[in-house]
């Protein structure tokens, strides 16, 4: 039982990061119908920016987090206006390929800037552990979960309570109707890309204090967020959060009980099962087309 709880807590910590990344991924998809395969690279870039701001420049964690979030949001906007906006209305395959191209360029930029040598974890946040009975709990895991929860709540508040958020929601729900009501689709798309990248920035800042090694392989987090998003439902914000946590927990339990080689098999296997049973995910809604 003790092992089960420790694995679950570890899964919740890593799942919180998956949830944040999946949230950005789902937001962009929901608003623009674009599967952004560069989202993992956005998070990786944020981790490396943390290295510069927290370690090299010695900035405060919160200041650094805000600067990175803003920089990432700007990057999201730049990518939208320079690359994605001209592709609106183009075939899905072309758009997806472009996001893969963006991922390759971001990896190359990081490699050229930071070099190939791996760095260790950033230890700005507390790294110790505390015991609850026989259960050992890490501070950083709890911080990761707490900050992720606050970020998700802030995101939901923005999406449901602010005028801009409601406009985004309207565009995501029904583009034609929203446009007829005078809501700018381009502005909504741009904001979605900005917020999506910002969420990756928040996730990266947090994860830089959790990951044991910082290298370009961190973009693989994007691959973990993908099943999380699909599992929860690609058009469901809440689903992305739950999906992220489920994938994190299932991965850790599989690795802990069956061995590391089962980690991916179980996570992606679960995704297949859910897709077969509920093609629109656990919390997604089927798209109805009237003919």
């Amino acid at each position: 039982m003790e092992k089960f709880i420790e694995l679950t807590l570890s899964g919740i910590a890593i799942g919180s990061v998956y949830a944040l990344v999946a949230l950005g991924f789902v937001l962009v998809f929901k608003a623009t119908d674009v599967l952004n395969f560069a989202h993992g690279e956005f998070m990786m870039l944020a981790v490396f920016l943390s290295l510069t701001l927290l370690v090299s420049w010695g900035l405060n964690f919160i200041v650094s987090g805000i600067v990175i979030a803003v920089l990432m949001a700007v990057l999201g906007l730049v990518i939208f206006f320079l690359v994605m906006k001209p592709l609106v209305g183009q075939p899905l395959f072309s758009v997806v390929l472009v996001t893969i191209g963006i991922a390759i360029i971001l990896r190359a930029v990081v490699l050229i800037t930071y070099g190939p040598v791996e760095r260790g974890r950033i230890n700005v946040l507390p790294q110790g552990r505390f015991d609850i009975g026989d259960i050992s709990v890490s501070y950083i895991g709890m911080i990761l979960f707490g900050v992720s929860a606050i970020s998700v709540l802030a995101f939901l508040w923005f999406f449901n309570r602010t005028r801009t958020g409601l406009r985004l929601k309207a565009v995501a729900e029904n583009l034609e109707a929203a446009s007829a009501m005078g809501i700018s689709a381009v502005a909504a798309f741009a904001i979605s890309w900005g917020i999506g990248a910002l969420m990756a920035g928040v996730a990266g800042t947090l994860y830089s204090n959790f990951t044991p090694v910082i290298d370009t392989n961190l973009s693989a987090i994007g691959l973990r967020a993908f099943p999380a998003a699909v599992l929860g439902g690609l058009n469901s914000i809440g689903g992305a959060i739950v999906g992220g946590l489920i994938v994190g927990i299932v991965e850790q339990l599989a690795a802990g009980y069956l061995g590391g080689e089962w980690r991916d098999v179980v996570a992606f296997g679960l995704m297949f099962v859910v897709i077969i049973v509920r093609p629109y995910g656990l919390f997604g809604t089927p798209e109805l087309i009237r003919v």
């Binding site: 392989n217 987090i221 590391g260 980690r263």
Partner: peptide, 20 residues
Amino acid sequence: HINVPITGTEADAQVIRIEE
């Protein structure tokens, strides 16, 4: 032998096995 997946980014579950 304990496997560390090449696509993973941490080794928490493996460390729990080591503790066991």
